[in-house]
Design a protein around this nucleic acid. Structure first.
Lengths: 308, 308
DNA sequence: ATTCATACCTCGGAAAATCAGATTTATTTA
DNA sequence: TAAATAAATCTGATTTTCCGAGGTATGAAT
């Protein structure tokens, strides 16, 4: 007792034409298939719905027409579900869930998003700041559509594109003697008290930098938010090594900070964008494209500190 | 780009359990089938809807949940269409379209119908008086669900049950000399002026009666409605031979009429009920049963003239 | 009455879809 | 490291579906 969608389709077209052969022609199938479909429906309901009159086509009785009506509605629903599913991929609408491990994302995400998100309110954004691992977890589990993360520490199964290589730079109080220079060396930095950004991947990365260049450094503070680091630096607690910078030289505490390139050759952090490359939704693909365009053009000038 | 209902079913149950094996168990199928169904859906939409994590089951992303929701709704609609179709057969509701070739049907149909039609207004009756041929045509074409007709002239493809053998009787004016007898002979009738019911099957039948019993008869009038015949008889234009009689001895014109059995052995007319025996709707079957019950018990006393 | 065209029905074989079961692979847990 | 779990994959069997070639009933035209 089940009726396939195919049988419904055949049944309704046959009934629309009141003629099995014509229906078969429209459907590009054999007439016998249409006849079989009608049998299927009648058997399933155990009802006579159509009277077949040789050389006269077929004719539905009242029940048949009623059933056909219901079928038509169901088929319509079916098609709309399919096309809505296709829209899910095609449409620039729906929900875009971004997980990012990029503390200065507020510096660039808004402008990127506004470059392609239509103003009609059909797109709902979910922006979630998280650490590198949970970003990747979320992407794999489908919690995020796309993630911005540091690909130095990437799972093998994750598809991603590199957005930008972010070299380390030194952040100094505006009033600091070194701030007058055009660049600094690791040796110079190592002599200052340091404010260290203490976040999963970054902490190890910065640790590595100092381990290779100078053994003895004075840590003045650890902070797990970029803005806290900037404000500590601005207040003169020390200097810091960071990789990306916002578009303002004022910290939250109102003090000026200065970013200077580091003349030593240092490994960079790689900001990457991860997403399902095999079948991205159009909304996701647009976002990815916008990010890549942004960093290809304006990136270096806006979020990085130029090298020497 | 098509998704079978089966695939939808598998997809949604897999998602409900967040586990392919459990879904397969619930559906009583192999896990591979569920996995294949998910692939089918994802391929159709060219979207990743579910992330599969070995030893952790599966998890849908937002699009997957959305799609599943739409699927669920569609499946629900599907099931309701099926069950509504089943109701079409099972329920004592819907439309009952009766075609009848039985001029005195008003004498018995109402009481038969009221014996099983529920009072909740869920049954719509279409009662259509027609001739014997168009009744059978209508049944074959599905215009009527059931017909009351004379099976002396029946198409080979029509299923029917005999309701009653209706012997011919003689209708006389209440004031007629013969009305005092308990029965009459064809010879007596043949000497009277006759009012003949002139309808498709009946006309031939009555012609045959007189052809075999007496050559010379005087036709006073032909009329193609039973009530006109009765009123003509009541008004003294002649007498008539009929097969069934209403429950009143008064004609429309107010004159009394009397029905007397005919002592000669005559072929009877067979009132039968025709319908789709192979898969009758419940409503139709009830009607048929009610008709058979009615004529099995009360028939002879109510609509016929008892034989001698 | 005969012939012809139309349109449905039946039946066999072929193609496709679907399924189950065994095997393989990946992950978590002990 | 081993065991347990769960998904992926592969293969052969089964079922469904389809087509095409007759066959047959009906109505119209000659």
């Amino acid at each position: 007792m089940a009726i396939s969608l195919r049988a419904m389709e055949y049944f309704t077209t046959a009934l629309r034409h009141e003629n099995i052969a014509k229906a078969a022609a429209e459907l590009n199938i054999a007439a016998s298939a249409v006849s079989a479909a009608i049998d299927q429906v009648e058997t399933a309901f155990d009802l006579t719905l159509i009277t077949r009159q040789r050389s006269r086509g077929i004719q539905a009785n009242a029940s048949g027409r009623l059933v056909a009506q219901k079928f038509e509605r169901l088929l319509e629903d079916y098609r709309s579900v399919l096309s809505e599913g296709a829209d899910l991929k095609a449409a620039l609408s729906g929900t875009l869930r971004v997980g990012y491990y990029a503390p200065i994302a507020p510096a660039f995400l808004p402008s990127i998003l506004s470059s392609f998100v239509p103003a009609d309110g059909k797109v709902l954004l979910h922006l979630e700041e998280c650490d590198n691992d949970s970003a990747q977890d979320g992407l794999m589990k489908g919690t995020y559509d796309v993630i911005l993360f540091v690909s130095e520490d990437v799972r093998p199964t994750i598809d991603f594109d590199v957005l930008i290589e972010a070299p380390a730079y030194c952040l100094l109080p505006g009033s600091h003697p070194l701030a007058a220079q055009s660049s600094v060396t690791m040796a110079q930095i190592a002599m200052q008290p340091l404010v260290v950004l203490n976040r999963p991947v970054a902490a190890d990365y910065y640790q590595g930098l100092f381990d290779t260049h100078s053994k003895d450094v004075t840590i003045a503070a650890y902070a797990n938010s970029t803005e806290m680091v900037r404000s500590l630096v601005g207040a003169g607690h020390g200097c810091a090594v960071l990789n990306m910078q916002p578009l303002t030289s004022l910290s939250y505490c109102g003090a000026e900070v200065v970013g200077l390139p580091i003349s030593d050759p240092l490994p960079a952090l790689t900001l990457s964008i991860g997403y399902d490359k095999s079948r991205p939704r159009r909304l996701v693909q647009h976002f990815v494209d916008a990010c890549r365009a942004h960093f290809a053009q304006a990136g270096p000038q806006r979020c990085l500190v130029e090298g020497p």
